[in-house]
Design a protein around this nucleic acid. Structure first.
Length: 586
RNA sequence: GGACCCGUGGUGUAGCGGUUAACAUGUGGCCCUGUCAAGGCCAAGAUCGCGGGUUCAAAUCCCGUCGGGUCCGCCA
């Protein structure tokens, strides 16, 4: 063994013991004849004292630099009365070195390990093994471990079985773009990496494993975001003989206990509030609203049906909406600040932004559109929005989806600027009653909003024929502080219903047979009613860790362009490899 | 596919038409026995992501490109 103790465990009670430590030089304070070295490992930091009275040992400290790996044998001593360091867990003691070895020297690191923050993220990603030495990443990795451990223990106690499913599976064109793996044995054929183990876990239900879970790696070849990586981890779950309410109840218990165990300083509101998709979109312009603050969208459409203002009139005539946001205390925004907001809305595909500012002293309203309104309309808007002197009113007129995108973005921007979101509140909620289908005008068919195995509400079944847009899905999203942290549904378990859905999705009999034949066939051999959910572990850990990207809670994440800066993946391969795989580049 | 932001010694910043390209930290050397971001003195280290253009003159202005990030589209 290289060490008798870790760098985080020595206390007063160890005083007098001869110990051996091994770790990295965190900091070094050279006083000439006396050198202090803070020796670090993932358990903590211990101060080691090198005295020139033992010259050979002192020489080791003299040549040591940051991040050298040292092995030190020495005596645990109580520090002199004036020299205790309350900042350190080991601050009451120190180790006087009696012998020392440099296990490995280190070049000057491109990142400071002892001092964090500020550097280009590309540098952190290139030298991730150095970044991971730092306290922030270690804290996040430990939290992530604890979260996953808690989930496994909780589900084990509930009678769930963790079952692994394959990574090389069949590609199906539904949903996100697949990552493909060429087959050497079958020229011209490809495996896909799972976007999620969706079909496999449903087949496990058919097999009678009525409570399944898996800490599952998922792959989606789509463009990245702060909360989206090409590969990510879900707590994939499925249960038989359950209804929506059963899944919701279980998950609430899981997360309430999880948060109490791993982030006891944070508050959780229980039970988790529920809102319908329609309500979420109407009030927040988002299907994953941050409920830690109000700042709700206000619908003005009905006030402006006869307005002469072309922007509003045009939007309403084309079936769109006029909605607004009341920003308290921002009525003093300058023209420049307002132009930036307009630019932001345009940058996100919006047509523009109308604004009205109410001076704090109660003077005349400044606005970009007041002159163009009919008499009384501005007053009606102010009344509907309950605007106070000093407020800023932001109004968007467009088709409903664009209004939602723009106002959701503004809502989140101002929540941040005005510090409205309590960082220690975990405001979980459920968003329910998603539409099952979404009309795709380009392809002239319906698309599955969730995925094609999602069950419709039983009472909406007749609408499948008459008004598919109105059919609600038995689908549920778990939302936390403005992020979707889990989505699930009750699945179709009857072949006839599944076939009906495939028809609406424009999937032909032949395609259904070739793509999903195994599912349809399985449903003929006694498939139980079942449903599940898949909480996203990266996003949950990110929120529990107070981070703003999931990269901070992944050991080796990729860049926005899906590259690994440390290993330089993806990379070109040998001509020979391509040949074996029957692949020609063009 | 699109919009916006960033790119200066090892690291983080300043400089934004003419500077010996500044500062901090780290690095090398010397001094120092109680520091914990130790301190003091000295030194080395960047031609400003890359390419092109404008100009008497470019880190500084323009165009392109590469890399990183945020967002829209895409994606649950």
């Amino acid at each position: 063994m290289y060490r008798s103790h870790t760098c985080g465990e020595l206390r007063q009670e160890h005083v007098g013991q001869e110990v051996t430590l091994a770790g990295w030089v965190h900091r070094r304070r050279d006083h000439g004849p006396l050198i202090f070295v803070d020796l670090r490992d993932r358990y903590g930091i211990t101060q080691v004292v090198f005295d020139s009275q033992s010259p050979e040992v002192h020489a080791i400290a003299e040549e040591s630099r940051s991040e050298f790996v040292l092995q030190v044998r020495g005596l645990v001593r109580s520090r002199p009365p004036e020299a205790h360091n309350p900042e350190l867990a080991t601050g009451d003691i120190e180790v006087t070195a009696t012998s020392a070895t440099v296990l490995n020297p280190a070049r000057t690191t491109p990142l400071y390990i002892a001092k964090e923050g500020g550097e280009d993220e590309a540098l952190r990603l290139k030298y991730r093994y150095l970044d991971l030495r730092r306290e922030r990443m270690q804290r996040n990795m430990i939290l992530r471990h604890r979260v996953i451990k808690f989930m496994r223990d909780f589900l084990d106690a509930e009678g769930f079985l963790e079952i692994e499913t394959p990574i090389l599976i069949k590609s199906t064109p539904e949903g996100a773009r697949d990552y493909l793996v060429p087959s050497r044995v079958h020229p011209g054929s490809f495996y896909a990496l799972p976007q999620s183990p969706q079909q496999l876990k449903q087949l496990l239900m058919v097999a009678g494993y009525d409570k399944y879970f898996q800490v599952a790696r998922c792959f989606r070849d789509e463009d990245q975001r702060a909360d989206r990586q090409p590969e990510f981890t879900q707590l994939d779950m499925e249960m038989s003989f359950v209804e929506q309410e059963d899944v919701i109840t279980l998950i609430e218990r899981l997360f309430i206990q999880l948060c109490a165990a791993v982030v006891p300083h944070k508050r959780v509101l229980t039970p988790f509030p529920r809102l319908s998709y329609v309500e979420a979109m109407e009030r927040y312009g988002s299907d994953k609203p941050d409920l830690r603050y109000g700042l709700e969208l206000i619908n003005l459409s009905d006030l402006l049906t006869a307005t002469p203002f072309n922007v509003f009139k045009g939007a309403l005539e084309q079936g769109g909406q006029v909605k607004g946001l009341r920003i308290p205390g921002c009525g003093n925004y300058t023209r420049k600040q307002l132009d930036e907001l307009i630019e932001m809305v345009r940058g996100s595909g919006g047509k523009g932004l109308a604004w009205a500012a109410l001076p704090a002293d109660g003077g005349d309203v400044r606005s970009s559109f007041g002159k163009l309104l009919a008499p009384g309309e501005m007053a009606a808007i102010i009344e509907r929005m309950q605007a106070q002197p000093g407020d800023l009113l932001l109004i968007v007129a467009d088709k409903a989806s664009s209004v939602a995108t723009a106002l959701d973005k503004l809502r989140r921007l101002f929540a941040e600027r005005l510090n409205l979101a309590d960082p220690d509140l975990l405001h979980f909620s459920w968003v329910l009653d998603f539409p099952l289908l979404d009309w795709n005008p380009d392809e002239n068919r319906w698309d599955a909003v969730h995925h094609p195995f999602t069950a419709p509400h039983a009472e909406d079944l007749p609408l499948l024929a008459s008004n598919p847009a109105k059919v609600r899905a038995q689908a549920y999203d778990l939302v936390l502080n403005g992020y979707e942290v889990g989505g699930g549904s009750i699945r179709i378990h009857r072949r006839d219903v599944q076939q009906r859905i495939f028809e609406l999705l424009g999937i032909s009999e032949e395609t259904a047979q070739s793509q999903f034949g195994h599912m349809l066939e399985a449903f003929e051999y006694g498939a139980p009613p079942h449903g599940g959910i898949a909480p996203g572990i990266d996003r949950i850990v990110m929120l529990l860790a107070d981070e703003s990207t999931i990269r901070e809670v992944m050991a080796f994440p990729k860049t926005q362009q899906a590259a690994d800066l440390m290993t330089n993946a993806p990379s070109e391969v040998d001509e020979r490899q391509l040949k074996e795989l029957h692949i020609t580049l063009r």
